[in-house]
Each structure stands twice: as structure tokens, then as C-alpha cells.
Amino acid sequence: MPLLSVDDLTVTFRGGHGRPPTRAVDGVSFQVDAGRVTGLVGESGCGKSVTALALMGLLPGKGVDRGGSAVLDVGAGSEFVASGPVDLLGLGPGALRDLRGSRIAMIFQDPLSSLNPVVPIGVQVTEILERHRGLRGAPARKEAADLLDRVGIPDPTRRLKEYPHQLSGGMRQRALIAMAVACAPRLLIADEPTTALDVTIQAQILELLKELVDQEGTALLMITHDLGVVAGLCEQVNVLYAGRVVESAGRRELFAHPTHPYAHGLLGSIPRLDAPRGDPLHPIRGSINDRIAWQDGCAFAPRCDFYDEECLEGPPALTEPRRPDHRVRCVHPVLDTTAEEVTA
């Protein structure tokens, strides 16, 4: 049984005041296996962050409709948390709060705005220790210092007393990671954790995440638009388009044989140093706004090179045109792929 099994997840923002509702996530299904790194990849607006927030129960209560299920294997229970599998979407706010931070944790995109500027780092770390592990006072501070040390923040005891603005960008993200792993969660969701950072710092943060996942056996759900991050970190990749998973495969398989025209186009659009001089870039034409609703056909059809009438005959089903663990949602999968082998 997978650690997290998301099935037909939908999130709709009600419009109100005469505006039509927006379906940000439109039937997303994927699985996260324990102790592995799973990627959720897609361009801006494809619903990846909303998926993460829905799993965390952090979407606003009013004006948002959720559907489908997301079953998490909580593992051993505790004083607060019942054991066994639970549906995250079916839990009440209290039960969800008990899981948040202890069984599932999340790292956000912008480390500066994600830390409270007027609260010392130490307090922001110890409050989660107090909430889920009952640690207070000196033991909590000791544990917090150990956590900062583990995520590679030098001189942790001094840093505990400092405020976010006194830390560098990389250091802030490390502090946020320390908070996220403070209670050894079973699932860690990272929503573009490196987008706001310098390239050198990005590599360090990814390295740190990898280490933590390996040591703790924590599963990592990596949400990103950066194919470099996917190539470096994710073992299983789900490509999201317009709120639905269009391709799901292992990393090597996906990079070697991108089969959905969108994934194919994505990989083809990466500029290559060994391409001949004067070779033009190959962007996917149009934007994510050029789409049709999934129930009318393939949302990607308006931008697709392989588009024909058949694409508009209802939503395409997930098929396995190449091998059993490589699922593609397309009626015209790119099978004769001569796409340049991208070494993962």
C-alpha cells in the first residue's frame, strides 16, 4: 500500500458575484510511496500548489469545493493521532491540525515571507516541538538547536535568538526545513523550495532534502516546474497539465521516452549546449490559458502538434502504451520517440 494515494482530487474555487467558478485541480490522481521522492511537475497555473495545499488542508474553508480522496497511511498512532489510513479530505479541522506538522509537513516557496519577521527563529522552531512533542523550555531549545545543526545552520544556539531578517536566504530555507522535519513526518511536501534561491544555494538545499529523506525514510513530494530539479531528485514523476496528471513514469523512463505530447514538448523545449549553432529554441506554442475543459476532450489539444478530431471526443483515459508503470493520458501518444535521449 502506498503512503499517500490521491484519487480523483478536484478543487474548485467558487466564483461568486456572477463570476464563473474556477476548477484549479481537475481529477488529479497519483501515489507517493514511503521513503521515495515523487515529483509533481507542471507550469505555473497547472494546479500543483493548490494540490499541495488541499492535501495539507490549508485552503480557505469558504468558497472552495473539494472532491475525491487522499488517503494517507498515518502509521503508528499516538496520543493525538489515530493509526492506520485516513482520508485527508474527510478529516475535520482538529484532526487535520494534529496531523499537520507531525505526520505531513510542508516547505514553502519564499523563505522570507514564510517566516514571521517579528518572532525569533528559536520560537518558531520550538512552537512545533511544543505542539506535537510536548517539549518546552530548555529541552525544546536544545532540540531546536540540534535541528538547526542537522540542516546545516552554523552556530545554531546563537541563531535561535535571531530574527529572520538576520539570516541569509539559504539559511532561512534551512530553518523552514528544520521546522518541517522537526517531528519526523512521514510525508514532506516541498512546494518549489528552491525557486527563490541562488543557483548554488538551490543545489545545497536539494542536497539537504535528499539527505534528510534518505536518513529518515520520509517520503518527499516535490512540487516544481524545474526539470533540472526533477532530474536530480525525483524517482517517480507526475506531469500535471490544467489540473490533471497527463503522464506518470519513473524518472529515467520519462526523460528517455516522454510520451505525452506535453511532456515531450517540455523536454524538447530545454535549450541544449550541444545543439548546432543557430538551432532555434523549441517552445510549446500558446499558453496554459489556451485550453478546453477536460470533460470536452484533451485540455492540451489547442497547443498540441498531434491534434485531430479524436482529441475532442471526451476526456482521454490513462493508458499504458509503452510499459505497465508508464501511464499516459493521450489518444495520440508519441511512441516513435526519436527525442534526444536526456540523461537523467
Binding site: R97, G101, F108, S114, L115, E127, I128, L176
Partner: peptide, 12 residues
Amino acid sequence: DYIRTARAKGLR
């Protein structure tokens, strides 16, 4: 954003 972070920690 930091309010979201605080909620993500499971704080009451």
C-alpha cells in the same frame, strides 16, 4: 505567508 506556515505546523 507566515500565517500559512504557522498553520502548516498544526498550531491551534
